[in-house]
Write a protein that binds this DNA or RNA. Structure first.
Lengths: 117, 117
DNA sequence: ACATAATATAAGTATTAACTTATATAATCA
DNA sequence: TGATTATATAAGTTAATACTTATATTATGT
């Protein structure tokens, strides 16, 4: 019955409203921590700590690029985790675009928050 | 984004190893608290409290019959909850049978734990 | 009515969790 | 090199969680 402990860890990672919101944002694509601070109205360390939990649980993957860290959903999930992610609606972070679009170009130079789709 | 809070409540209910085990036992059919105390090696109030959490989250349903309370899985679940339940293996409580079989007959009279399948 | 049995509630404890603020690390830019 | 920016870590606080033991409630059987 060790499967139960394994499942427990993943479900714990997804049983917190803040982390579920983080996953909702990630459904639209890569996001970096700075964006989420604004949107969730919690401190930067709080976001950082929650992202770590999602990463440790295998829910998300990270990619370092200069000073930024970009997070994305891990596509390989057991069905019960995928079902949870599917249930969440994709939510756009208004400032998200700068992170994603400026990616390969001038990363880290102009990180304006006001760019819109 | 209130769906997130709703999901959080249900996932919290299923993110604890003890409660996942309880659900595993319920997959084989109705169980009463006294049976689970023996199997899980935790106190009767602990089982009672955990069952209440599962009930409050809508994961299980209860049926009172004399002094006993019989619990069963609630079949109507959102897909992400059902996926979790599906992932769990059904585990039989060795003493479970007395509860279920003696049900309509001599309920509450002879609750021997040693009856086997 | 009284004893017994199944479950519930109360109260206490130890652990975990989710934040906070302050500070450290690391990469980039001028 | 020194300032700036993104993220990480440390330490502390508060609240929630999962048990425990003790006791109360409720239904049953004699």
């Amino acid at each position: 019955m060790n499967k139960v402990n394994e499942m427990s860890l993943q479900l714990k990672a997804l049983s917190d409203p803040t982390r579920l919101k983080l996953v909702s944002f990630l459904k639209r694509g890569e996001v970096c921590i700075c964006d989420l601070v604004d949107v969730l109205q919690i401190s930067q360390p709080a976001v950082s700590q929650q992202m770590k939990k999602l990463k440790d649980a295998g829910i998300i993957l990270e990619r370092k690029k200069g000073t930024w860290k970009h997070f994305r959903l891990n596509e390989e999930q057991p069905p019960y985790v995928q079902a949870i992610i599917n249930e969440l609606e994709a939510v756009s972070v208004s400032a998200q675009i700068c992170c994603v679009q400026n990616d390969e170009k001038k990363e880290g130079l102009n990180h304006a928050k006001t760019v819109t789709q």
